[in-house]
Design a protein around this nucleic acid. Structure first.
Length: 981
RNA sequence: GCGGGGGUUGCCGAGCCAGGAAAAGGCGCGGGGCUUAAGACCCCGUCCCGAAGGGGUCCGCGGGUUCAAAUCCCGCCCCCCGCACCA
């Protein structure tokens, strides 16, 4: 029934162009919603964000603002290409999801084999869906992010950032599929979505070999500080490779060497070796060598030949020194900390980083347990020819943590771990030790110049130092494994070279953003803190891609601009889009000079006119439009965009525009679930907006989604509740139609309704100002409905007194139905009417007091009637002294002062006990009692005797004497004694 | 781990920032009315006890402050979201 009404008004709005906004004398309100990404149909999740935006747009419009609510489409990036490829390949899963959940007819879907066709199809569908739900969008400003003029605009933006020094070159690690030869995104993963890229520190230990000379043992660790507690090196008893890595020979696992190839290294395998060749040999720990350099040099006879001692690291890198120390180590135990043995351990995972591990038994439970295992395993020692004394090493403690002596050893004993095969317990132990040490640990004296530092602060420092000394490196690895691409191949971490970055780490820039976050409005307010934290956390962002739809970096056309970076200040483009769509401006007109002028007010019109090929008037008109509409007054968005788009939106506005054009407010809302389940574009379940509207109607969908949740909490789309909402709306519609006649003369009950309605108006307006749509719908629809119900029950027959206002109050939420109803009596569009205002003078406290009294009275009698049946109810009102005492009591702060005041009055002296009981009850709920003094109970009951009788189904008699004395005494003002007979 | 949010009566959710309601509203459930009947609609009820409008117990758990706490303070437990280069 509603669909027909809805279509009618959508057509009428379209025909009369009422939502096309151009500058005027009115104050403006520019509200935007993130444009949707078109790799599928719009769903009820989009619907939430958009409907909130539309409700606010409509509300503001009715509050007297000239509202601009535009919409465009985002198609930049790879997913659309990915989709068209999957469709071309006739990927079964994709076809199923898109026919079943996105409601794309199979034969049409199969045609969408190029990105262009995908964009073409879904943009049409999206526009249809957005029109069908009746959003008040100015469609003249529609665009798609691959439009040529948009690309010019993005180029301009990037030149601006570059001019300001906010773009730089660098390299960075990405998740990469060797088979697809491409970076892999989350939704392209079969496994390992949770995995993040971790940078292991490589601590190089050195050994020596006759064939290869100096050999690097690249020990991968997340705790570089433990380099000071190394007792030995672990490798797994299996095959390894020797590879020349950037000129040095490294010992690596097979997996490790493959991974390293992707990490911007010059890698060449030079040989295959069995780990056992290394067991029992020594490796030099360069950090310790440096720390103990004096003693080492003393020990070496030739020391006077050596150059300055500060050169330790260089000597080590050059190799000869390594050889010397190794020889020393063979001769004496004195340097067992500097040169440590290489030993076998089964727990070493060759698929984790380099496959070479340094052993720190004092702080790593695995290391300690493996060492103990080895000490006990005579057979193994013999097998590998390792002499006993090599394994007799003691843990070296380098971190002080309260409560522990030797942390790893203590925890291993605590948990009763027996061998290195107790993986589960060992993992637990590792977590415990790591956690305690990370948060509470302090580095000890034996860490040299790092002594006294907190463990939580050491990692970056030490990683940097090791690299600087030439004895460290970084190895990227996934935090979890395996990570598998959709094609079935194991992913690797690839370091991309010569990448363009947006330098979000720039402190001045961050500072400006942080300051502005303090100034602007953020809804809900507690997200301000969230935004601040995210700004601090934000690092440089790679903004160039090899693949995808979008705009090329204008000064380096091999690269495409990444898709989150091209959608940061596009709200300004809506202003250009109108002129572009009208044909007044073409992409070739959009020179940098023109954009400088219209967006920044920089340059000379005449010159810009010549360079851009546009006439001066047009240029000035665009500039005026921009000056009128900018800044964005409200950006309303889903919470998923907080840590990315919304942040970039702020950063870029602040970098490019002057302060007066910085965004004024950001609002954040939650997701929509489907019968409690998460929706997924690529996997389902999913409910399209189109289907929701077709099945339930636009207004039902809107009202449901606005009412179902608020702020960042998630809404849940439940079919049964949607249907209940539909019935509510139908009832409302019929109710208004039946009662929307002439307004009759106003009586008490009407005044009550109008008074109550004022409160709803105030509540609704306040809620909408704070984007609390749930609260707004609750008060504007449900609470008013409840009052109306009481009103009708009470015999009200003049409902029309509030209907003009009620319809207007609801118009932002259910515009079609309101438009239809409004036209019963009016010619104008309710969408353009003014929003009801709270009118203090219409609040009638007496009328409200009377109705409250009646509600309470009926409730009380019903309570009594649960236990006493009868035909007649007798009321006896409270004695006069109680009213007098009540007046005094209400003037007093406390019961005590009320009592003492009353006792000064002779009349109360004799009944002190009664007065005290009375006061106790009064002070329990003073507000209700205060209200009672506004009315005359007896006449209220007399005047409404018929109503009370009808409600209770008994006769009402006002005869005090019929009520037993004891009952009569218990009467309170507002609570007459009740006697049922 | 870090950061943000949260645990309220069968469910969803107000309220808690500004302490004084067995705690709005919706859904569900039960009863009644209407109806040939079902649905829809309207009314009533929906923590426990109660032959008088009352009493008792409640807001993750445990303490504390207060005449008074879901609301303030302290400790603990649990849950959700983000941690990126992806739209």
């Amino acid at each position: 029934m509603f669909r027909e009404i809805e279509k009618r008004w959508q057509r009428a709005w379209e025909d009369s162009k009422i939502f096309q906004a151009d500058p005027s004398d009115k104050p403006k309100f520019f509200i935007t919603i993130p444009y949707p990404y078109l790799n599928g149909n719009l769903h009820v999740g989009h619907c939430r964000t958009f409907t909130i935006g539309d409700a606010i747009a409509r509300f503001k419009r009715m509050c007297g603002y000239n509202v601009l609510f535009p919409m465009g489409f985002h198609v930049t990036g790879t997913p659309i290409i990915g989709l068209s490829e999957l469709i071309s390949k006739r990927d079964e899963r994709t076809i199923e999801v898109y026919t079943k959940y996105h409601d794309v007819p199979r034969e049409i879907l199969l045609e969408l084999t190029t990105p262009e066709k995908v964009v073409e199809y879904f943009s049409k569908e999206a526009e249809k869906a957005l029109r069908n739900i009746g959003y008040s969008i100015d469609w003249r400003r529609k665009f798609t992010t691959t439009d040529l003029p948009y690309q010019r605009f993005i180029e301009w933006q990037f030149y601006k950032l570059k001019e300001k020094g906010l773009i730089a070159k660098g390299s960075h690690p990405v998740r990469f599929c060797p088979n697809c030869n491409n970076p892999v995104e989350d939704h392209d993963l079969l496994m390992g979505e949770e995995a993040t890229i971790v940078d292991f520190t490589i601590v190089k230990l050195y050994t020596f070999d006759d064939r290869y000379g100096k050999i690097v043992l690249p020990c991968a660790t997340l705790r570089p500080e433990t380099v000071f507690g190394v007792t030995n090196v672990w490798i797994k008893p299996t095959k390894y490779v020797l590879a020349r890595v950037d000129g040095e020979v490294w010992l690596l696992s097979f997996e490790g060497v493959e991974k390293l190839r992707y990490q911007e290294r010059d890698v060449e395998v030079v040989g295959e070796v069995d780990a056992r060749e290394f067991f029992g040999k020594f490796a030099v720990n360069p950090m310790l060598a440096d720390m103990l350099i004096e003693e080492i040099l003393e020990e070496i006879e030739r020391y006077e030949d050596m150059v300055e001692k500060t050169e330790t690291f260089r000597w080590i890198r050059e190799g000869n020194f390594v050889q010397i120390i190794l020889k020393l180590a063979e001769r004496t135990n004195k340097f067992r900390r500097v040169a440590v043995p290489i030993l076998p351990a089964e727990f070493v995972d060759t698929d984790s980083a380099t496959g070479v591990v340094m052993s720190v038994p004092a702080h790593a439970p695995y290391d300690y347990v493996a060492l103990e295992d080895l000490k006990r395993d005579e057979g193994k020692l013999n097998m590998y020819g390792i002499s006993r004394d090599l394994v007799e090493v003691e843990p070296i403690v380098l971190i002080r943590v309260e409560g522990y002596n030797i942390p790893a050893v203590d925890v291993v004993r605590e948990l009763g771990i027996e061998s290195q095969n107790d993986r589960e317990l060992l993992d637990k132990a590792t977590r415990i030790v790591y956690k305690r040490e990370f948060h509470k640990g302090i580095l000890l004296e034996n860490t040299g110049k790092y002594a006294g530092m907190k463990v939580s602060e050491i990692k970056d420092v030490l990683q940097r130092d090791l690299i600087e000394f030439g004895v460290g490196d970084i190895f990227y690895e996934f935090s979890e494994k395996p990570v598998v691409c959709r094609c079935g191949t194991k992913c690797v971490v690839k370091v991309v070279k010569d990448q363009w970055f947006i330098v979000y780490s720039n402190d001045d820039w961050k500072g400006d953003v942080l300051d502005w976050i303090g100034e602007m409005r953020i809804i809900p307010d507690y997200y301000r803190e969230e935004f601040r934290n995210k700004v601090l956390w934000l690092k440089d962002k790679a903004c160039a891609r090899r693949r995808g739809l979008g705009t090329r970096i204008p000064w380096d056309r091999d690269w495409l601009i990444e898709s989150l970076s091209d959608s940061t200040i596009y709200m300004a483009y809506y202003i250009l889009a109108k002129f572009i769509n009208e044909g007044k401006v073409k992409s070739e007109n959009l020179t940098r000079e023109l954009l400088d002028f219209v967006l920044l007010g920089v340059g000379d019109v005449e010159e810009v006119s010549i360079s851009s090929g546009l006439d001066v008037e047009t240029i000035e008109e665009i500039r005026r439009d921009f000056e009128y509409w900018y800044p964005v007054d409200m950006r309303s968005s889903g919470k998923d965009l907080v840590a990315n788009h919304l942040l970039f939106f702020l950063f870029h506005h602040i970098a490019i525009f002057p302060r007066e054009y910085w965004p004024r407010a950001i609002a954040v809302n939650g997701y929509v679930r489907l019968e409690g389940e998460k929706m997924s574009k690529s996997k389902g379940p999913l409910l399209t907006m189109k289907r929701a509207v077709e099945e339930n109607g636009a207004d039902v969908t809107r009202l449901y989604i606005l009412y179902s949740a608020e702020y960042e909490s998630d809404a849940d789309w439940r079919r049964k509740e949607v249907e209940a909402m539909k019935r509510h709306l139908e009832r409302f519609y019929e109710l208004v139609r039946e009662n929307y006649g002439e307004v009759k003369e106003i009586d008490h009950l009407d005044r009550w309704l109008v008074s109550r309605f004022q409160r709803a108006v105030r509540e609704t307006r306040d809620a909408m100002e704070n984007l609390q749509t749930r609260r707004a719908v609750n008060s504007a629809f449900f609470e008013v409905m409840n009052d109306v119900r009481w009103y009708l029950k009470r015999g009200g027959d003049n409902l029309a007194v509030i209907l003009d206002d009620w319809i207007r109050l609801l118009a932002p939420f259910i515009p079609h139905i309101c438009e239809e109803l409004w036209h019963i009596k009016h010619e104008s569009f309710v969408s353009l009417e003014s929003y009801p205002e709270f009118d203090e003078s219409k609040v009638d406290e007496k009328a409200e007091a009377i109705e409250n009294y009646l509600m309470r009275l009926i409730e009380d009698v019903k309570e009594v009637m649960k236990f006493f049946k009868g035909d007649v109810v007798y009321f006896a009102f409270a004695e006069d002294w109680k009213f007098e005492a009540l007046r005094v009591a209400l003037e007093c702060e406390s019961m005590k002062s009320a009592m003492s005041r009353l006792m000064k009055d002779g009349r109360f002296k004799g009944i002190a006990k009664d007065v005290s009981t009375f006061l106790k009850r009064v002070f329990k709920d003073r507000e209700t009692f205060r209200e009672i003094l506004k009315i005359d109970e007896r006449s209220v009951v007399e005047e409404n005797r018929e109503f009370i009788e009808r409600e209770l189904g008994v006769r009402v008699v006002l005869d005090d004497s019929a009520v037993p004395f004891e009952r009569r005494r218990s009467a309170m003002p507002g609570k007459p004694a009740i006697y049922i007979h």
